[in-house]
Design a protein around this nucleic acid. Sequence first.
RNA 1: GGGCGCAUAGCUCAGCGGGAGAGCACCCGCCUUACAAGCGGGGGGUCACUGGUUCGAUCCCAGUUGCGCCCACCA
Length: 876
Amino acid sequence: MAEPTRSEARPLPPAFVPAEVDAPLYERWVERGYFEADEKSDRPPFCIVIPPPNVTGSLHVGHAFEHALIDALVRRRRMQGYEALWLPGMDHAGIATQNVVERELAKQGLSRHDLGREAFVKKVWEWKAESGGQILGQMRRLGDGVAWSRERFTMDDGLSRAVQEIFKRLYDDGLVYRAERIINWCVRCHTALSDIEVEHTDDEGELVSIRYGDPATSEVVVATTRAETMLGDTAVAVHPDDDRYAHLVGTEVELPLTGRRIPVVADPHVDPTFGTGMVKVTPAHDPNDFEIGQRHGLPSLLVLDEQGRVTAHGPFQGLDRFEARPAVVAALREEGRLVAERRPYVHSVGHCSRCGTVVEPRLSLQWWVRVGPLAKAAGDAVRGGRVVIHPAEIEGRWFSWVDNMHDWCVSRQLWWGHRIPVWYGPDGEVVCVGPDDDVPTGPGWHQDPDVLDTWFSSALWPFSTLGWPDDTPALAKFYPNQVLVTGYDILFFWVARMMMFGLYARADQPPADAVPFRTVALHGMVRDEHGKKMSKSFGNAVDPIEWLDRFGADAVRFTLARGANPGTDVPVGADWVQAARNFCNKLWNATRFALLNGAHVGSLPPAADLSAPDRWILSRLNATAAAVDAFYEDFQFAKLSEALFHFVWDEFCDWYVELAKTPLAAGGAAAERTRLVLGHVLDTVLRLLHPLIPFVTEKLWTTLTGEESVVIANWPRADDSLVDAAAETAVDEIQRLVTEVRRFRSDQGLKPRQRVTARLIGPAGGSADTHEIEIRSLTWLDEPAEGFAPTASLQVGSVLVEIDVSGSIDLDAERRRTEKDLAAARNELAQAAAKLDNEQFLAKAPDAVVTRIRERRTSAEAEIARLEARLAALGG
RNA sequence: GGGCGCAUAGCUCAGCGGGAGAGCACCCGCCUUACAAGCGGGGGGUCACUGGUUCGAUCCCAGUUGCGCCCACCA
């Protein structure tokens, strides 16, 4: 047997101080290459690509949350023997980053146009270097076990090549095309936006009804919330079956303020029951009107420029759309009661998701991805079970989205991003250039000035980061990724597009291997301690660094994991992080205690040589390990964290460690046996906890075992043979006895450590008999001396405890307690008895339930008898 | 306008057909040589409302009220 000398050799400080522990450990992990993955390995692959953070700024708590989950998954798989890869990187975040840099420039009174495209883009790269470095630093502090050698950026050469390649393929397949349509135009960002980049809110506006045609005889009344767009009307539409207006169809009416005459057309899109049943048609500034225009060959008249200013017609020219709106209404009124009605109107208004500006629908020539076949494949992959979405309830949303997707506008009028690889020739030639093609040169040739939607490159992330379009070993090994962990908020922005492009790019593979990932695990959003959305403007956003400084990375990670119920939002507050920090410290001190007492890791003695508490804690340990494994398979981070928390604190620390003090003090074989069990339990539970709280566990585990690192230790396997029902029952008895005595003492006003004498009388070999020393120690009861005269007695299970409460017993307190317990027991009995009197219950309830109720009745009866006796003894 | 989800202890949330749970907060007592970032004990809930199904409902169904989210081109 090894001598317990380690503890003296490697003492632990009395408290866990993350600031002193974390950083050196992380550096060592990286130096030793633990997080690197070998694509040539025979081990099964486990790859998760990071949802690339925007280089825009620093990580927020949501990132910390996501990283905590991913890191836990990857670390566990690594311990299980997988070739585990967490691939890091960042996203250039086109519009977001450009905005940030433009804002910086604005502080100096400059616009990007002052710099020019080339200089501006250079500026953004500088920003990227600075901001990106900050993000990487935060990831190190969090303990993210990423393969740094594989770090990628969506704008680096390889990924840009992938973007160009896929664009070229899509172009050649007719899946990307250029067309003039209504797009969402942000007048502040000066770019087109895709539909999902627009956020709708119910805004207060005004619905204005306007008379068109001859004021005297006018029967044409149309309504609008955007009066200024009337300047661009090119028709009025009615429903084809609307008899009220059938006579007008084919005629022309005068458009006020413009001197133009516009036709009345019949179109099925018009809802005859809404308003007057007549609609103004502005093909250049409304998607529906554009459709109507197409159907009737109407001209499209742009009346707002890219700044949202009126381009047409004298008095309004140059006015912002929001100035033009009332101005037009006023002019109509002056013109002679052309405004039939004005009323407040709450309606859905689209805003730029980046800057909040009201989006202007606007006719524009843009590049589009034809989404039909791609989206169908994305839907089928989930339908066919090739990709599994967690939690499953989200699938409904998934299908309704992919099955109804509109074509995706992918061109952006920005400078920061992947430039569209299309050249236009002097004679109207259009050439799409692949990564290995020659760029057309010569007079008149120029490249499309626009860049691609930032999500276009993100969509390639699962394979572009692994070397695609080249046929690399990494791609072969790690594609499809095993899991994708991300927030439900970007299911459509990102997950759907990765599915579409992954399936398209890898269409040469068998269907099951073309998918970008096998499982999508969606998490919720981090919220504040009251469940409110975190936002800077609301002032409740937390900088994770603050918590990292105060409580350490493990505490932050554990808090977040512990709150992570599948797919639901996670509320967190500083108090909770503190509680997690306390847990880490508890673990620290339990290990410290064990080491101070010579705990070490060795082969466990056979069960027959172990005490009931030993067998109990091993039983609980293995049950916990099994539960943790099951929870991991289901991404139940809250449950598995809770299981480990409960095991460590409530079972191991509160009971096993306390019970262990007796054999440790006894010395000899009992002490050595206990040291081995302590060592074994800690060894195992530290490994189980490592994926969640990597730093403390590394420090404690290496100190305990003397081994190199828990990062590369084996994941514990639950051993069913160590689950021991008899031991659990035995310890359960001890716990009940101890708790009852403590309760009695507390009721009697005895100080916790105040020694009183007592005699324990139980059946030979029962828990009181075999563990009397432990029980006395935990209840501060001394052996009775000569002439022992108990002043009180209490029966707990099969054990009678006679106590000499030094001094007089507080009869009132004791009576109150007993009466209360008695009432509870009687209530219990009544409930059980009522059920057992019910014939239908007996006939229909499952046997197990009936048995349980019978047992409950029996124990309630015994309890009542006991309590009544006690009450009688108390003179009640 | 559609679709989805949620209402359980003061707060944040688990549980989800047969004994109401956790963390934090609260009250009482303890500086017990692992830990005061701790230890022991304790109080606190007609499980939103109304009906239904069932021997039995916090749990299933319907409706009501309140809250949240997603989608949508209704002037």
